[in-house]
């Protein structure tokens, strides 16, 4: 097993009497990407802050490349070996992209042009930072974070707020940059976690509920295919609940585990007979459905028996 570059043990963080991170243990090895997936407020960003050294754990321990990042003196050499991209990309807004990246490059003795090329933003070199679109800002943020050629790369919600096309482009860039580094990213997008994370930790309320490869998570928590009835609402749920104990609601969708065609036929006949119209389709399990199931409380009376 390769040596872990990032190790957090029983990590706890409390702020204003509230427990934000509650006993999280994780490891990230070189060449591995771990995605922390969870809804807002799950504690993902706070974990990254503790790993980056900007927040001190209330309890538990953190080491990054063998050093406690909260120990300012000891972690000075670590700052060169660790890159952190916070959620909002901060830069000198009046300066051009190249001038901004040159500053970060000068701190580490790196080549700004190569950094811009590595993130696919060289064509924006002469553009004022404030005039960049969101996706390009993220790319510039990546270039700044990579100036020290870090061995450990922390990314906080790297594509939040981007449209699907831009998010895909930024993810593609991150994928290329992750090679050989220990990468830990936080995200609330199951698609992103699945695409980037060799392993995914599903989080809610400061805890890691499950952590494994996407394939193993799907096998362990995904269940089989499900039949989704969309648009029937509570009346569809009530009708089907009388026939199937395993029926449940996800948001406004009524969901029935798919076992055989006979069940589907019975369900449809019952709904049509009662004049309840629904859009019906089958769905394979995804990280998104696992995330919802593990993190969203079921509405009263809507749980599967």
């Amino acid at each position: 097993m390769p040596e872990a570059a990032v190790v957090a043990k029983d990590l706890v963080k409390e702020r204003y009497g509230r427990r934000i991170v509650d006993g999280v243990t994780l490891e990230v090895s070189r060449g591995e990407t771990l995605a922390l997936l969870g809804p807002p407020g799950a504690g993902k960003t706070t974990i990254l802050e503790m790993l980056a050294g900007s927040a001190r754990p209330t309890a538990g321990s953190v080491t990054v490349l063998g050093v406690d990042p909260a120990d300012r003196a000891a972690s000075k050499p670590l700052r060169r070996r660790m890159g952190f991209m916070p959620r909002g990309v901060a830069a000198f807004s009046r300066l051009t992209v190249k001038e901004n990246v040159e500053f970060f490059a000068a701190i580490y003795g790196a080549d700004a042009s190569r950094l811009l090329e590595s993130v696919g933003a060289a064509q924006h070199a002469a553009t004022r930072f404030s005039r960049l679109g969101d996706a390009d800002r993220r790319k510039v943020g990546l270039a700044m974070s990579l100036a020290g050629d870090p061995e450990v790369f922390l990314l906080d919600e790297p594509t939040s707020g981007l449209d699907a096309y831009d998010a895909r482009e930024v993810r593609r860039t991150i994928k290329g940059l992750a090679k050989g580094r220990a990468v830990l990213l936080s995200t609330s997008s199951a698609e992103e976690a699945e695409e980037l994370g060799g392993r995914v930790g599903i989080m809610a309320n400061g805890r890691v509920l499950a952590m494994d490869s996407p394939a193993n998570l799907l096998a362990a928590f995904g269940g089989g295919q499900t039949i989704v009835f969309r648009g029937g609402g509570d009346s569809a749920f009530g009708t089907l609940r009388r026939l199937f104990e395993t029926v449940s609601m996800e948001g406004t969708d009524v969901v029935l585990p798919f076992e055989n065609l006979r069940d589907l036929e019975v369900a449809l006949r019952e709904l049509v007979g009662r004049g309840i119209s629904s859009e019906v389709f089958t769905r394979s399990p995804t990280l998104g459905s696992i995330l919802r199931r593990l993190t969203e409380p079921e509405p009263p009376g809507h749980g599967a028996a």
């Binding site: 900007s54 060169r80 901060a90 830069a91 580490y108």
Partner: peptide, 17 residues
């Protein structure tokens, strides 16, 4: 103040500067 408000100073505090 602008550098602080935009998060730039915080970001710089996490570099080797």
């Amino acid at each position: 103040a602008e550098a602080r408000d935009s998060g730039l100073l915080r970001r710089l505090s996490l570099t080797s500067l």
